[in-house]
Simulated scan of single mutants.
Amino acid sequence: MTLSKHINILIVDDHQIIIDGIRSLLKSSATIQIVGEALNGEEALQVLNTKPVDVIILDIEMPVMNGIELTRIVKEQYIDTKVLILTMYDTPEFVKQAIEIDADGYILKNRGAEELESALQALARGEDYYGKEANKTLRSGVRKKHTTNQNKIPLTKRELEVLKEIADGKSTPEIADKLCIANSTVETHKRNLIEKTQVENASKGLMKFAIENKYI
């Protein structure tokens, strides 16, 4: 996604009071512009066909077309549009599903304007944003099952350090700062990890791999 002066936002939720609340939370932002709203996935697609949208803020449970179905379509047909799931569902199953359908972010509705804006800014920079609660929830639902092949993957000490930071939701600059290495070195370790683990996504894929295989 190419950054413009404003981050164009589409809000999708089946409760108008939630849409109004998000508008109120973001109205003072100088960089965020709300270009549309919709009460379900089908209405959202109508907006996407007529207006440029950088980030969609959407709920999971909606009538007509839910957030999961909408996200799948967006990731296939509107590749420059990022998806931020804003939901009340705080369960490992929903967080894992969000990762599997390649949602770019996941935060809970009980969070304030500061985290919402942080998530939107991260997505606009091309980063993923899974809130601390989502990471904690995902960890709590991890089972003790390991697959034989994944357990035999050899990782270096530094790769393990980088993997743990990725699983904790840290960005490349944050990892570089904590481990006292260059951003380019972090990216090299990420590429090595992707090659070794055969995941498709640097952040969400490695996060899921680390948690499911007890590397954290």
Rank of each mutant, 00 (worst) to 15 (best):
A124C: 05
R125A: 11
G126V: 02
Y130R: 09
G131A: 08
K132V: 15
K132L: 15
A134V: 11
A134E: 04
N135D: 13
N135P: 10
K136R: 14
T137D: 03
T137N: 05
L138N: 00
L138P: 01
R139T: 09
R139D: 11
S140W: 03
S140D: 08
G141N: 03
G141Y: 05
V142K: 10
V142R: 11
V142F: 14
V142G: 09
R143V: 13
K144A: 14
K144P: 10
K145Q: 13
H146P: 13
H146F: 15
H146N: 15
T147S: 14
T147N: 15
T148K: 15
T148F: 15
Q150D: 13
Q150E: 12
Q150F: 13
N151C: 12
K152L: 13
I153V: 06
P154Q: 03
L155Q: 00
L155S: 07
T156R: 01
T156Y: 00
K157M: 01
R158N: 09
E159Q: 12
E159Y: 04
L160H: 06
L160R: 03
L160Q: 07
L160V: 02
E161T: 00
V162I: 09
L163F: 11
K164W: 03
E165N: 08
E165T: 01
E165H: 04
I166E: 05
A167S: 04
A167T: 00
G169Y: 02
G169C: 04
K170H: 11
K170R: 10
S171H: 06
T172Y: 07
P173E: 08
E174P: 10
A176E: 00
D177Y: 10
K178I: 12
K178M: 10
C180K: 13
I181T: 10
I181S: 09
I181R: 07
A182K: 12
N183G: 07
N183M: 12
N183I: 08
S184Y: 14
S184F: 14
T185H: 08
V186H: 00
T188W: 11
T188M: 11
H189D: 02
K190N: 02
R191V: 09
R191N: 05
N192W: 02
I194G: 01
E195Q: 10
E195A: 11
E195Y: 12
T197V: 03
T197K: 01
Q198F: 10
Q198Y: 11
E200H: 09
